[in-house]
Structures are given as C-alpha cells and as structure tokens.
C-alpha cells in the first residue's frame, strides 16, 4: 500500500510544477463556465423549473461539471497508450506492483491536485459571478468526498481500458476519442441527465458514465439524499468495482500478447 501512496504523491508533485499551465486552464474553464451559463439563464427565463432544477441549481450544476473535467479526466489522457506504443510498458509490467494499481495511484494523485488547484477555484469563480447553491447539510460534504473518489475510479477505469486498446491497434487515440466523446455526452457534462426525455433518462442514469460527472453533481446539489443517496453511491461503487475488474481482466489478456523484442 505504501508504494501506491508514494506513486500518488509523486504524481501530485509532478502536476505542481506546471503552474502556468494550470492558470491557463483555469482561465479557459472560467470562460467556458461563463459561456455555458448564459444559455441556461435564457432557458430558465422561458421556464422557471426544468426537470426539478431551478436556475440556481442549473448554474451550480454548470460550474460543478466545469470544475470536474480535469479531476475525473473527462477528456482523457493517453499516457498508458503511449507507453504501450513506445514499448516502455514492458518495464512497468515487470515492476513488483500491480500495473493497474500503479496507474490508478497516479490518477488519484493527479485528481487530488486538480481538485485543489482547479476544481475549487473554478467553483469559487462561479460563486463570485452567479452565486451558487451550497450544501445545506454537513453530511453532504462527506458524501461528496466518497462520490468524487468513486467518480475518479470509474473515469480512470474507462479511460484505462481505452488506452489498453493500444495493445491491439496502433491507433488507440482514434478508438478512444470516440469513446470519450460518447462518455462526455452520457456523463451529464453537456446537459444534466435529468433533462433527457423520459424514455431515455432511465437508461443514461443507469450507465456507468452517470457516475463520472452527474452523480457527484447530484450529491453536491443534494438532489439525492437519504436512501437515494445511498443508492447513488452504491451504484457508483458497483460500476467502479465492475470496471476496475474488467480493466484488470483486460490487462491479463493484453500482457499475454506482449512480445519483448531484444536489443
């Protein structure tokens, strides 16, 4: 366990180096947070209540999902695929710890960095510009921490499997890009899943992608409380376990294919 903590810490520290990059990203998030908030203002002028959201809920959703992009790695990262392509994967596979665990630990280190230095400032900017809805109950913060931790796992497992495609194709980014585009839409990042038509909503809410963005946002908004909250976290935990299991299975299958070229 200590080795994974150390790996996570290193990943966290690596991100600390790129301060200006984070500032530029923060600027971009702030701009898009604003640009995407404006259509919501107009939409709620036409109707005061949309699928149980009032304007403030919708604005809070908007800034929360904007804040989460980097935390849950919504738009991917192809480091694993790159090591597979370059062959460096061989040295990672031969290290005395789990290949999946290694990358998962790194992802948690990265996620914690972005939670502190990206998500928090983005939400504060949203608060300054529009005034957001903050949790009314202290317990929500604890639930949010659990939900975010699970969201990172689900996001990671999905992305990791897309990366593993590099074992079979030279173009993991092409396959993965399509997967990320679909997951962005289905995660509740583009539009709250509650806004979906009634026939489609149960489907999108049951899929694992809901657990990457929509569930943490719902927890923060206190749209799920009590047993419903337990159910939402349970669904996230189930998907996290299933996807991590599937990812581990894929690692086992893929490593059988690895042929080390001498040299």
């Amino acid at each position: 366990m200590r080795v994974y903590l150390e790996i996570g810490k290193r990943a966290f520290q690596r991100e600390l180096v790129y301060r200006t990059k984070n500032l530029a990203g923060l600027f971009t998030n702030a701009c898009f947070g604003y640009l995407r908030a404006v259509p919501l203002l107009a939409a709620f002028e036409a109707r005061g209540d949309i699928a149980g959201y009032n304007l403030q809920d919708a604005l809070t959703w908007n800034w929360t999902v904007q804040a989460l992009i980097m935390v849950v790695g919504l738009w991917g990262g192809w480091e694993v695929a790159d090591t597979i392509r370059s062959g460096d994967v061989v040295s990672d596979l031969s290290k005395p710890f789990s290949f999946l665990g290694f990358w998962l630990a790194r992802d948690y280190g990265r996620a914690i960095y972005y939670l502190l230095f990206r998500a928090l400032p983005v939400v504060l900017i949203g608060q300054l510009l529009f005034g957001l809805r903050w949790p009314h109950h202290a317990i929500t913060w604890a639930a949010l921490a659990v939900s975010l931790a699970l969201a990172v796992s689900i996001g990671f497992a999905f992305r990791f499997m897309l990366n593993l495609a590099a074992f079979w194709t030279t173009d993991a980014r092409g396959v993965g890009g399509l997967g990320l585009i679909a997951s962005t839409f289905l995660s509740g990042f583009l539009i709250p899943l509650a806004f979906f038509p009634d026939w489609l909503r149960p489907v999108v809410q049951a899929l694992p992608f809901a657990g990457i963005v929509q569930t943490p946002a719902d927890v923060f908004l206190e749209r799920v409380t009590g047993w419903a909250l337990m159910g939402a976290l349970g669904q996230q935990a189930l998907w996290a376990a299933l996807l991590l299991g599937a990812a581990q299975g894929l690692v086992v299958i893929a490593t059988r294919r690895v042929v080390v070229q001498g040299g």
Binding site: P39, A42, A43, A46, R47, I50, A51, I191, F195, P197
Partner: peptide
C-alpha cells in the same frame, strides 16, 4: 435535449 424542455431561447 434542452429544447425538449423549453419552448424557446
């Protein structure tokens, strides 16, 4: 999806 919920923007 948004327009499915609102008449106009």
């Amino acid at each position: 999806v948004l327009y499915h919920r609102i008449p106009h923007l």
